[in-house]
């Protein structure tokens, strides 16, 4: 749940990038970190293994300016994607306000995307959060692989697999080149701020 400090006039919002391992969550944050330096006060924190896999989380605080006199900071987190790290994934979801689900459009990742989304549903339930109610944006990432003739899933199939019931906004993206990284971020921020205004103001 967002933290609202009436004394310092600050609001801290937590947005988590969730999805299967190697889908491009960390790459999203790296792109934001490189391209929005002026809004980022600190270094990106990445807790990773020696072979560059996310071990616990990546963390990037991001300023969005003032809303109703409150200075708003968005804290972006990623979860570790590997199956064995579900306990840490759940820890990162604590206090989450909005989620980007980063799915991998490669054909061979189809099952992993669905499993990861199902696990997100279960993990949110442990915090009494409902996947149908929390601000959520879908990102179908690595769309650039089409150019390399790597078999990918069409957005129609992605929508059917992941978004037929949720019906949340969805973006095709290429985190590696930055395609639709910022529109995804803006969408989830807009939705999350709207939901926080509904809850508190």
């Amino acid at each position: 749940m967002a933290l609202i400090n009436v004394k310092t006039k600050e609001i801290q919002i937590k947005i988590v990038y969730y999805g299967p391992g190697r889908g491009g969550k960390t790459t999203n944050l790296e792109y934001i970190n490189h391209n929005y330096r002026d809004r980022i006060k600190t270094e990106m924190v990445s807790l990773k293994t020696h072979d560059d896999r996310t071990l616990f989380f990546d963390f990037l605080p991001f300023d969005v300016g003032k809303i109703k006199g409150f200075e708003v900071t968005i804290q972006l987190y990623t979860v570790p994607g590997q199956a064995k790290y579900n306990a840490t994934r759940r820890l990162v979801l604590r206090g989450v306000d909005g989620i980007v689900f980063v799915a991998d459009v490669q054909k061979e990742q189809r099952k992993k995307n669905i499993e990861s989304l199902n696990q997100l549903y279960e993990n949110l339930k442990t915090y009494d959060l409902n996947i149908f109610k929390i601000p959520l944006v879908m990102q179908y990432n690595k769309i650039d692989l089409k150019e390399l003739d790597i078999p990918i899933l069409s957005s129609k199939i992605m929508q059917k697999d992941l978004n037929s019931q949720l019906r949340v906004p969805a973006f095709e993206a290429s985190a590696l080149t930055g395609g639709n990284v910022i529109p995804t971020l803006k969408k989830v921020i807009t939705m999350t701020l709207a939901s926080i205004q509904d809850q508190f103001f």
Partner: peptide, 30 residues
């Protein structure tokens, strides 16, 4: 969840308390 509610110091060396709080929450949770 990693959000600082109050931060106080004696005026000595500054550090990045936002990142610190996020890591501290992760550390404690682990």
């Amino acid at each position: 969840g990693g959000n600082a509610i109050a931060k106080l110091d004696n005026g000595t060396a500054k550090f990045d308390s936002t990142a610190f709080a996020a890591l501290a929450a992760g550390n404690f949770a682990a």
